[in-house]
């Protein structure tokens, strides 16, 4: 069972995760309007900006984050933004959505001008997240763990970051054992997604360059 302290940490992170989302009117634009390639690019860029703002608001609410050195806070957010964004957007393909919405979104991303070599690993990731059928709590904790990764570039006090990440990892490990008693490997599978995210992160800069070119 989770201790009282762990339950409080879990509630705090899940509440913050649910509270900070992409504004609904922006999310709606993705589904409702037709855009040419350039407008599509601008819309997806605005979405990315909004994702980062939402990510920062969520992160500010992770217990202890604001006690870290200010420049370390920025280094952590910079290092994890792309990964957290992929994680959050994977939700779109996990949740049950009204008929046709998933296809429409996929179509919009596929027609964004991003080249096929980057598209395939991205959709493979979305599929692998979808297969996990993560609970909201697991998604929120995994995002917090991604953000609190001590070995990001330019992080000075890695130990301080570890001290924040470890309790969140413990809660996630326990939660996985409680919610998936038949699947002892579930926690390891979740952590495996973090490795996949790192790979996507590495490809991301290259992907943006090719996207801008096209």
């Amino acid at each position: 069972e989770l201790t009282q302290e762990q339950q409080t940490l879990l509630n705090f992170i899940v509440d913050a995760y649910n509270k900070h989302r992409i504004p609904q009117d922006m999310a709606k634009k993705l589904l409702q309007e037709q855009f040419n390639t350039e407008e599509n690019f601008i819309l997806l860029t605005e979405m990315a900006t909004s994702h980062v703002q939402v990510l920062v608001e969520f992160t500010k609410n992770i217990p202890g984050f604001l006690t870290l050195d200010h420049e370390d806070q920025i280094a952590l957010l910079k290092g994890s933004a792309v990964e957290a964004m992929f994680l959050r957007s994977a939700q779109v393909f996990t949740r049950k959505m009204p008929q046709g919405h998933t296809e429409l979104l996929e179509e919009r991303i596929r027609r964004s001008g991003i080249s096929e070599e980057f598209m395939t690993p991205m959709f493979n990731f979305y599929k692998s997240i979808c297969n996990l059928q993560m609970m909201q709590e697991e998604q929120a904790l995994l995002t917090a763990i991604t953000i609190l990764t001590p070995d990001r570039p330019y992080v000075k006090d890695q130990r301080a970051v570890e001290r924040l990440q470890e309790p969140v990892l413990d809660v996630l490990r326990k939660l996985c054992a409680l919610q998936h008693p038949q699947e002892p490997q579930y926690f390891a599978r979740l952590l495996g997604r973090l490795t996949e995210l790192r790979t996507l992160n590495h490809h991301h800069a290259e992907m943006l360059t090719s996207w801008r070119m096209s």
């Binding site: 900006t49 703002q53 920062v56 608001e57 806070q73 920025i74 910079k78």
Partner: peptide, 21 residues
């Protein structure tokens, strides 16, 4: 527009401000 800002600028601005207000 925000979309012209770099990632670090967006993070710094968001950390300083409070979007909830």
């Amino acid at each position: 527009p925000a979309s012209n800002l770099g990632l670090e600028d967006i993070i710094r601005k968001a950390l300083m401000g409070n979007l909830e207000d």
